[in-house]
């Protein structure tokens, strides 16, 4: 099988330019999603909020049940119209069409990440157990402090493996934003390969890059997990 290795080498260096974009999207999405998802998980952990719980269940079910590409297309079409509407109503001097697609991508991915992460954190909070919270209250800590100093750290340690999977899923999903013309790894190579039709080489390079990135993330999480082993939740 004859592969054009020269093209592979050149497209590899080309693709490197897309890595910062991927990382930027991933990091920004996580920065937005993790706090919001955690807040939702805490809110749902309280006992008497039936309507809130129902609303979020529907939201999570919708995100879980629809393909990401459909979410991308719908939100990408809807959001500018929505923004234009708000801007016109408030008469802000803002050009909707000047917004870089990257920010739409971040918003869209946050939309689905928040759903997944809220479920992850809910499981984590359940794993920590009510006893820890009661002990904190009995020792005089306020509810807020109890959460920030005792509950949240343990919930995080407990969900690290699943969190790793979620982050990797985010990285893989980010490959889809070539559909909205974002210049990340997949988009760059697709354009390059369409010129000389050496698709296979190009995609092999992309595949290799994603595998390396994901494995690096897994390694980081393994290190974190080892550090957190001491905080193991006791039965």
């Amino acid at each position: 099988m004859v592969l054009d290795f020269g093209f592979m080498k050149s497209s590899f260096f080309l693709a490197l330019r897309g890595i910062p974009v991927t990382l930027f999207i991933t990091v920004m999405t996580l920065l937005i999603s993790i706090p919001i998802a955690f807040a939702i998980a805490v809110a749902r952990a309280g006992k008497k909020r039936k309507t809130l719980n129902l609303l979020f269940s529907v939201y999570v079910s919708a995100v879980r049940g629809t393909p990401v590409i459909v979410q991308i297309l719908i939100i990408y079409t809807m959001l500018p119209d929505l923004l234009k509407f708000i801007i016109e109503k408030l008469a802000l001097p803002f050009n909707v069409y000047a917004i870089n697609n990257i920010f739409y991508a971040i918003l869209i991915f946050s939309f689905s990440m928040i759903a997944f992460l809220s479920e992850v954190f809910r499981a984590g909070l359940r794993a920590v157990g009510r006893g820890q919270y009661e002990a904190a209250l009995a020792a005089g800590l306020s509810g807020f402090r109890a959460y920030t100093r005792i509950i949240a750290p343990q919930a995080f340690s407990a969900v690290l493996p699943v969190l790793c999977t979620s982050v990797n899923n985010l990285i893989k999903t980010s490959s889809l934003c070539f559909a909205i013309a974002v210049n990340e790894i997949t988009g760059i190579i697709r354009v390059a390969a369409s010129r000389n039709l050496h698709f296979v080489e190009g995609f092999l390079v992309i595949a290799a890059i994603y595998v390396i990135i994901c494995m690096a993330v897994e390694l980081c999480f393994k290190i974190l997990e080892n550090k957190a082993k001491v905080h193991r939740v006791s039965a």
Partner: peptide, 13 residues
């Protein structure tokens, strides 16, 4: 490897 590969890339490949 399959865990780290975006499905769209797999389909293209």
């Amino acid at each position: 490897v399959m865990r780290s590969l975006p499905p769209i890339i797999l389909i293209f490949l």
